[in-house]
Design a binder for these strands. Structure first.
Length: 256
DNA sequence: ATGGTGGGATCCCCA
């Protein structure tokens, strides 16, 4: 079973890439972030490629979706018990796995209103993650967490020290979810250097491999038991009109 | 060097 998370940076601008990715890689589940469109204008033509779709969009910014070859049940839009006016979380049960697509706020600048909101969002996500663990299910929370968990996830840790995406408070917020019982699938299955998942559009960052690992797949213990491997689809970042994020995939042993 | 690139909106915001 293949589950992929991908910040597409506009699903409509990226539609040909999404189509080709689904055709070429055939994931069971694709978790999308930064749709940048309202739910009713989501390109539902993707259903023609054999996918069921659940969307939580909004105008201009944010927006998350779940695409699955399997029936989608139990759809939850927004983090339960967390007040939020933006579309950053969608969860559902599909193919024997509970999956969530999450777009954690960027945070803009340290100590800004956006940064405080980011930490609040993490608190809401942590609380819900704790609840999810009580279900004793295979769960995969995938998304753009906007945090590089350690300096090993950063091409230039000196330059990024205490910058947003790399501050101790953000890393602690991410780590809390891991310590609660979720496994960082890419870190767990990687030997040697960590693969990056995001490269700035500016300053030829991708050509220099000046990236960060900020897109993650967090696995419940039951999902971790069937963790086979992970893949960062780096080639997607090298295409014309690419998203600034690469798709990140986890392969779980056994189907449904 | 307070820039740079990109998407979606509107006459700028967010990443």
């Amino acid at each position: 079973m293949k589950i992929v998370t991908w910040n597409v940076n506009s699903v409509r601008a990226r539609l040909p890439h999404v189509e080709n990715f689904l055709k070429d890689e055939q994931p069971d589940v694709l978790l999308l972030q930064e749709l940048k469109c309202e739910s009713h204008v989501f390109p539902f033509s993707l259903e023609d490629l054999g996918y069921n779709i659940a969307v939580y969009g909004q105008k201009t910014y944010n927006g998350v979706a779940i695409l699955s070859k399997h029936p989608i049940e139990d759809v939850q839009r927004g983090i339960p018990n967390f007040e939020d006016t933006t579309s950053r979380y969608i969860e559902a049960f599909t193919g024997g796995v509970r999956v969530a697509s999450v777009y954690v706020p960027n945070g803009q600048e340290v100590d800004s209103v956006a940064y405080v909101y980011k930490l609040k969002f993490f608190e809401g996500l942590y609380n819900h993650a704790q609840y999810l663990l009580t279900l004793d299910e295979k769960i995969v929370i995938g998304g753009d967490f906007n945090v590089a968990p350690t300096d090993d996830d950063v091409y230039n840790p000196i330059a990024w020290k205490n910058q947003v995406l790399c501050t101790p408070l953000e890393r602690e917020a991410f780590r809390k979810i891991v310590y609660a019982g979720f496994t960082d699938a890419v870190a767990q299955s990687t030997q040697g250097p960590m693969p990056y998942t995001w490269w700035n559009y500016r300053q030829g960052a991708f050509a220099k491999d000046g990236g960060l690992r900020i897109d993650h797949l967090l696995l419940s213990p039951q999902a971790t038991d069937s963790l086979n491997n992970t893949t960062v689809h780096r080639y997607m970042r090298g295409l014309e009109k690419a998203s600034d994020h690469a798709p990140v995939e986890v392969q779980l042993k056994g189907g449904m």
